[in-house]
């Protein structure tokens, strides 16, 4: 991706969206199951650069940094690509073996102690 003009604001890249349908964390792993160069050519520069760089399984944060696209935009674009099954979001990378509820209680307890 060439240097994007600074007047192109990030909200335009996502149509103002910030929320994602799937849970995406910075360390969530992303990969492209079947790379399709014809499909890549139809994408906008940002989506395309993310799509191409996700051919190797990469974390979201790494993708964002490598493509020079802010995390908020990366998440939405990757989410869009995932809904049309162009990229794969690896589920095991964000399911924690610990009970989330328990962890939250633990955290709250620690806060009270502090």
């Amino acid at each position: 991706m060439a240097t994007r003009h600074w007047k192109v604001r990030p909200y335009v890249l996502t149509g103002g969206r910030t929320r994602t349908r799937q849970h995406l964390l910075v360390h969530t792993l992303i990969s492209v199951p079947h790379y399709d160069s014809i499909f890549a050519a139809t994408l906008l520069p940002e989506a395309r650069s993310l799509y191409e760089n996700a051919r190797e399984t990469t974390s979201l944060a790494e993708l964002s940094a490598h493509c020079g696209i802010s995390l908020g935009v990366t998440r939405v674009v990757i989410d869009d690509l995932a809904t049309i099954d162009r990229v794969l979001i690896h589920p095991e990378s964000y399911t924690s073996p610990f009970d989330r509820h328990l962890l939250e209680r633990l955290r709250d307890g620690l806060r009270q102690l502090a």
Partner: peptide
């Protein structure tokens, strides 16, 4: 602020500010 923001709601607010500023 946008670059660091990870929370979707706050990012949306920042986007609105950015939009108005633009």
């Amino acid at each position: 602020a946008e670059a660091d923001e990870q929370d979707a709601d706050r990012l949306e607010k920042l986007y609105r500010i950015d939009h108005a500023n633009t």
